Amino acid sequence: MDLDVFVAAHHAEWDRLAELVRRGRRLRGEEADELVRLYQRASTHLSIVRSTAPDPALLARLSSLVAKARAAVTGTHTPAWREVASFFTRRFPAALYRSGPWWLSTAAVFVVVTGVLSAWVAGDERVRATIAAPEQIRAMTEPGGDYESYYSSGPAGSFAAQVWTNNAQVAAACLLLGVLLCVPVVLILWLNALNLGVGIGLMASAGRGEFFLGLLAPHGLLELTAVFVAAGAGLRLGWTVIDPGGRPRSVALAETGRAVGAIALGLVCVLLISGVIEAFVTPSGLPTWARVGIGCLAEVAFLAYVFVLGRRAAHEGETGDIAAAHTGDTLPASG
């Protein structure tokens, strides 16, 4: 191919395309059609030059022109910072709000079960004897014992990372295993309720129940709420397998699964905050009322985030699912 002849034949089209690209949104209807047509032709010209006469200067010119024309035809992508802001101000809180009945019910049942277990352990010496020997219980519950020293067992930074990782694993297990008909989520919740109930019961039997709750409350309120959210989302996903609600099961699972994915991403930040509180606030020298106050403030902020910001976004139509432009087309289904 004679490159000079090729350029002479098409440079007017390229100049016209560059002019239309510069004008952007000020184009009239026929000019927009012309922009699309010239963009398609320039793309073809770029392919021809690449395959037959790869002149570096001409390739650079056409590549730049085609890229700018493509952006003008298809529209520019939303900046990443705007996507992140939209996620945390709309998608994530709306997903939390819409799954509220699931995780609030989970929280209520968990609190009742934990309360019953802790009262049983605290009030029955025979039950405590099946848990550990008396000297072992004393080692766990006495001042400076295992329960108290746990929160200062390492440098605050590394301890925060350890706590964050552990809690993230529990939350991830609840989210991912819920699809197995909810059974694994129930087992995970039972084990956590059992561990917490035994700890509270043992400390209460030693007369240090209020002290122990003072250690748990600063980080535990937000941490347990995050676990409840993860468990509720996992149960919701598992129930979708059982009852897809009149939709094809694959469609229902895809929609619910994408909302659960949004919750999973957001909970990473929530658990990070609870881990920082557990590492830096719980073992600090602050008075109990100050440490508990920080935990309550974090919990109230989270609930306000869900039931103010999330409620507003949900009422405006936000579902927690990704934008329709990024999902595949689906066939209509009868209800």
Rank of each mutant, 00 (worst) to 15 (best):
F211Y: 11
P244I: 08
G178C: 09
I277D: 14
G232A: 00
L191F: 15
V260H: 00
V185R: 12
I242E: 04
L235D: 04
P244Q: 04
A279S: 15
V270L: 14
L222C: 03
L213S: 05
V268K: 02
A252E: 05
L237Y: 00
L224A: 13
A233M: 10
L235A: 02
P244R: 08
L194I: 05
V186T: 13
I277S: 05
S250M: 06
N195I: 11
A254L: 07
C269R: 09
P184R: 05
M203F: 02
V229C: 03
V270A: 11
L221W: 08
G275T: 01
A230G: 03
V183Y: 06
A230Q: 09
E223C: 02
V276K: 03
R208G: 06
T225F: 12
P244E: 09
L196S: 08
L222S: 07
A254I: 01
A279G: 14
L272S: 15
T225G: 14
G238H: 12
T240E: 03
R208W: 10
I273L: 15
G199D: 05
I277Q: 12
P184M: 08
I273M: 15
A252F: 11
L222D: 01
V186E: 06
A259N: 03
W190R: 10
V270P: 03
L224F: 13
S250L: 14
N195A: 14
V227Y: 13
R247Q: 14
A226H: 11
L213A: 12
L213K: 09
G214E: 04
V260C: 03
G257S: 00
T225L: 15
L181Q: 06
L213C: 04
V185G: 13
L215R: 06
V251A: 09
G234K: 00
I273D: 05
G238S: 09
A230V: 08
L194W: 13
G220W: 00
L191A: 15
A254S: 11
V251Q: 07
L235K: 04
P248W: 10
N195P: 03
L265Y: 01
L271S: 03
R249S: 03
R208V: 03
T240R: 01
L181C: 10
V229L: 11
V186W: 15
W190F: 15
V276I: 15
V183T: 05
L265T: 11
F280T: 02
R247D: 06
